[in-house]
């Protein structure tokens, strides 16, 4: 197997565009640079273009315009070299449902010209968790176990770059947490990880993130920097009358934007135009009870909402 020399960037995209017939622009002129040995997250809602980007990088589809390099190799002309050196886990866990856990792993090992024994040390900690079920068919595994098996299969040939397309979608919260722990361990082994997710709370677990919406990057930076750059004041608001809360808030000129955030509602206020007390008073006049208005620190999701609002305004 050919080794790829260390290149400056694990992934480098320049003005990458992809349009699907009829007229759906999945990627719009995007630029991206991912440095090696880190966990890089592509964060955005469904349909933002994450899978399209990953399919271009894994040489599965061709971009219409622009250039992309993976570990210094061009995705169009050197696709064979790339295919040898990356591990890819597509959105749906691509396992053979009618093969057992062990047969799946054995098969994928042989696809990459290796054996389970040869690279067992890399997958050991992950595979040990599902080894008791090694004679069970993959179709009968739980979501979390399927995910672990798919990750083991993607790692079996010691790839330098691991590309994971929404690996935590449809997996329970405990398994999600374990999964990110595994990714951190793999990073320690020197593997670069490119991961996409629609869960904003997972953004803080990445070393760097790119926020993507409608085929465009809103921002590429570390999660800390993105949160730091959040300008407006942010209030978390709770009320018994949740359903009319958004309409009432939108009627107030001082409120820049507001959106449901889990159990509560988040509202942004530009330049401290309204204090929590004043806001509370306004809302109770509107008939809200059990009110709670608390200034809070922004999360990546708040940044995403703010950035997407700015994009739509432009």
């Amino acid at each position: 197997m050919t080794n790829i020399q260390e290149s400056e960037w694990a992934v480098k995209c320049e003005k990458l565009s992809k349009t699907y017939k009829p007229d759906i622009q999945a990627l719009k002129n995007i630029d991206l640079k991912v440095s090696p040995h880190q966990i890089f997250g592509i964060i955005g809602p469904d349909g933002a273009g994450k899978t399209t980007l990953f399919r271009i990088l894994t040489t599965l589809i061709l971009a219409d315009e622009g250039k992309a390099e993976v570990m210094g190799c061009d995705v169009v002309t050197e696709y064979e070299k790339i295919r040898r050196n990356i591990g890819y886990m597509p959105g749906r866990f691509s396992l053979y449902q009618d093969l057992t856990v062990e047969e799946n792993l054995k098969f994928f090992a042989s696809v990459f010209g290796t054996t389970i024994e040869e690279n067992y040390d890399l997958i050991k900690s992950i595979y040990q968790q599902i080894e008791p079920f090694k004679n069970r068919r993959a179709g009968q595994l739980s979501g979390g176990m399927k995910q672990k098996l798919a990750l083991s299969c993607a790692l079996i040939h010691k790839p330098k770059l691991l590309i994971l397309d929404e690996p935590t979608t449809g997996v329970d919260p405990v398994s999600r947490k374990e999964f990110w722990e595994m990714l951190r361990q793999l990073k320690e082994e020197g593997i670069t990880i490119l991961v996409s997710t629609a869960y904003m709370d997972e953004a803080s677990l990445c070393d760097a993130i790119a926020l993507i919406l409608d085929g465009e990057f809103l921002k590429i930076d570390t999660p800390e920097n993105i949160v730091r750059q959040f300008e407006p004041t942010l209030y978390s608001i709770r009320s018994l009358q949740r359903s009319k809360l958004l309409t009432d808030l939108r009627g107030l000129p001082a409120i820049d934007s507001c959106y449901a955030f889990g159990e509560s509602t988040h509202a942004t206020v530009i330049h401290n135009q309204i204090s929590p007390e004043a806001l509370k008073k306004y809302l109770s006049e509107k008939g809200h009870t059990d009110l709670e208005v608390v200034p809070i620190a922004p999360t990546v999701e708040d940044c995403f909402m703010e950035l997407s609002k700015q994009m739509h305004q432009n």
Partner: peptide
């Protein structure tokens, strides 16, 4: 249909 072709294509084989 099951998406396994995606993984197989991204392999040196």
């Amino acid at each position: 249909e099951f998406g396994t072709m995606e993984v197989l294509l991204v392999s040196p084989f």
